[in-house]
Simulated scan of single mutants.
Amino acid sequence: MDHDNILETNGLNHWFGAGEVRKQALFDINLTLKRGSFTVLMGPSGSGKTTVLTLVGCLRAVQEGSVTLLDRQLNGATEAELVALRRRLGFIFQAHNLHESLTATQNVMMGLQVHRGVSDAKAQTAARHALDLVGLSDRVSYLPANLSGGQKQRVAVARALVGNPALVLADEPTAALDKDSAAEVVDLLKRMGAERGTTTLLVTHDNRILDRADCILTLEDGRIVRVDDRH
């Protein structure tokens, strides 16, 4: 594996169910993500986009094929190995999943809970820096109820970025946002790629953000049917 590649999958297949109801969900998925790249995975509902995300994100066991993440092979990896790799990833979802009783800073600090040995003081400093990165330095003490939809999603982005992950996996992060807020979230992830070498794989139906992608993969019925490389 090229060390400039954060992720490689080869011949990735996946099934759901067992026996007569067993159904293949992914067919021969081959993809490569280079350090700092911003890749979009598109396709209709049920095409397998989220399944790809959960497999490469160590949230689901690889059944068949090769997935190499950060120079580690996921097929056959132990649970302890998968947990260690998950600590090096950032996750963003359509629902911001913020805790309503916690401030923006406290919500972002939760992104460091998987990292052992981080003191509360260091976690708070890192959280405030991450909020500054996403343009929310004036909202660090706000509760989610007092933030707009775009601001809540930026807090979720800060939470994903606070541990300085090598790879960010984003599942429909702009779906509930207006055009300007969606652009802000995507531009932020692009900037992290340029400044930190953070790699992003983003699942979306949102055509408004496609012009910002380095590569667009189109998935249909569990197969990659188109690769649009913008480099």
Results as ranks from 00 to 15, higher is better:
residue 1 M to L: 13
residue 1 M to W: 11
residue 2 D to R: 15
residue 3 H to A: 15
residue 9 T to M: 01
residue 29 I to E: 04
residue 29 I to K: 04
residue 34 K to S: 09
residue 40 V to Y: 02
residue 41 L to E: 10
residue 43 G to S: 06
residue 48 G to M: 09
residue 49 K to D: 12
residue 53 L to P: 07
residue 56 V to M: 08
residue 60 R to E: 15
residue 63 Q to K: 09
residue 67 V to L: 09
residue 68 T to P: 00
residue 69 L to G: 06
residue 73 Q to H: 14
residue 74 L to R: 13
residue 79 E to Q: 11
residue 80 A to R: 03
residue 83 V to P: 01
residue 85 L to T: 07
residue 86 R to F: 02
residue 88 R to E: 04
residue 93 F to A: 03
residue 93 F to V: 02
residue 96 H to L: 00
residue 109 M to C: 08
residue 112 L to G: 02
residue 112 L to D: 07
residue 112 L to V: 01
residue 113 Q to A: 13
residue 115 H to P: 02
residue 121 A to M: 02
residue 124 Q to F: 00
residue 125 T to F: 04
residue 126 A to G: 01
residue 132 D to Y: 08
residue 132 D to E: 14
residue 134 V to E: 01
residue 134 V to G: 12
residue 135 G to P: 08
residue 137 S to I: 05
residue 139 R to W: 14
residue 141 S to Y: 05
residue 144 P to S: 07
residue 149 G to A: 07
residue 158 A to H: 07
residue 158 A to P: 05
residue 163 G to C: 08
residue 165 P to V: 03
residue 169 L to G: 13
residue 185 V to H: 08
residue 187 D to Q: 15
residue 189 L to C: 03
residue 190 K to M: 04
residue 191 R to Q: 15
residue 195 E to H: 07
residue 195 E to G: 12
residue 195 E to V: 10
residue 195 E to T: 15
residue 197 G to H: 05
residue 197 G to Q: 04
residue 202 L to T: 02
residue 208 R to C: 03
residue 210 L to H: 09
residue 214 D to Q: 10
residue 216 I to W: 12
residue 216 I to Q: 15
residue 222 G to T: 03
